[in-house]
Design a protein around this nucleic acid. Structure first.
Lengths: 192, 192
DNA sequence: AGCGGAAAGTTGCATAAGCAACACATTGGG
DNA sequence: CCCAATGTGTTGCTTATGCAACTTTCCGCT
């Protein structure tokens, strides 16, 4: 519908996302109206609908972009799922969750669920990309997807649990627990 | 041509002026191209021309806005040209010149002249407004314009000279010199 | 002088954004 | 219960912006 390259489009979407970020710090998601967003972004309400179906679509893009920005080039270009990469994913995921729950008041369960699902999905996709690039690995290609899903879910679940349990900022320990579990599960060779 | 109230117009003009301000800190006015401005403002070059005839028109609006933002409500609402108001105008003018010459590299004389003329004009207009509001004053109405011009020029000339001479930031002294000159020239009663 | 490139402006057309009005759903008092 | 207020989503039309192509002007260089 709209040309994603048009500078007007890029600007408008940035305005919307920035306004959304600011609003999330003051109000919980449910009580943010499209009007709030449009006003703060100094755009017309109709313009919002030209870009997003509703505020859930915005939340989706927002969380995805925030996640992408945290993926380092090292992870992005990795051709093998090493312990180093694994560690980075664990820490990154944990930090993402911490920040997100701190910034936003994830008051309503349905919203928290949406965000959680998004993070998990992004994580799985990231892992799958790495595994697919390393054409030589002990996992059959046809199982790559489910392996990625498991791994992503494991990392995410651990990070989330770690936050809930309240072991704040002990990421070293978190990594020590999760890494061997994941690497063993993948059956990948451990660097001595 | 363009509706000054349209939010798109307001935003675009802000973008342009902000880009212009940033560029002035890195390059001298002459070497700034319309392309530079458009690129930094993330707008199309043709859009620039929809708002300003050329970069001189932009400079004009830019300096005017900067000046307006420095006029206090007290001066704006003044109904009489008191010593207090006079002092404020002197200091404000001096500070404006200092800031402007510091921010921009006023390399080329013609540009410096343009800016200087603008400041003087704004100053004269501000003074005229005050004099006209105070309907009872010793100056004939038909002479208000020329009186304002003289006063504005005097204040501006003094401030500019003060800067050139190098008596930096001795605004107290500047005020002590200029105020009696101006107030005596106007023939206004001196507060004991 | 004359050449060539860069910047200045201009123009016609495509597209995004603004706006006002609309129908509909939700909700919170009286 | 009702209705008034508020939010959602849509639509038709207007206006501003983007873009590409063009001419003109300016300026350095040989």
């Amino acid at each position: 519908m709209v040309n994603q390259q048009d500078p007007r489009v890029l600007r408008t979407r940035q305005f919307i996302k920035e306004a959304f970020r600011e609003l999330l710090q003051k109000k919980d998601f449910d009580s943010i109206t499209i009007n709030d967003i449009a006003q703060r972004a100094t755009i017309n309400r109709a313009t919002f609908y030209a870009h997003y179906e509703d505020k859930y679509a915005l939340l989706d893009e927002f969380t995805e972009q925030a996640f992408r920005e945290r993926i380092s080039d090292q992870v992005l270009n990795a051709r093998e799922f090493t312990e180093e990469i694994c560690d980075e994913l664990i820490v990154m995921t944990y930090n993402y969750i911490v920040d997100f729950y701190r910034i936003c008041r994830m008051d309503s369960k349905p919203i928290a669920t949406l965000v959680d699902e998004k993070i998990k999905k992004m994580l799985q996709q990231t892992i799958e990309n790495i595994l697919l690039k390393g054409n030589i690995h002990p996992v059959e290609d046809r199982y790559t997807k489910i392996i990625s899903a498991m791994t992503g879910s494991a990392i995410y679940g651990a990070a989330h649990s770690w936050l809930t349990v309240g072991e704040k900022d002990q990421t070293d320990l978190l990594v020590e627990i999760v890494r061997p579990y994941v690497m063993n599960g993948l059956g990948l060779p451990k660097v001595p």
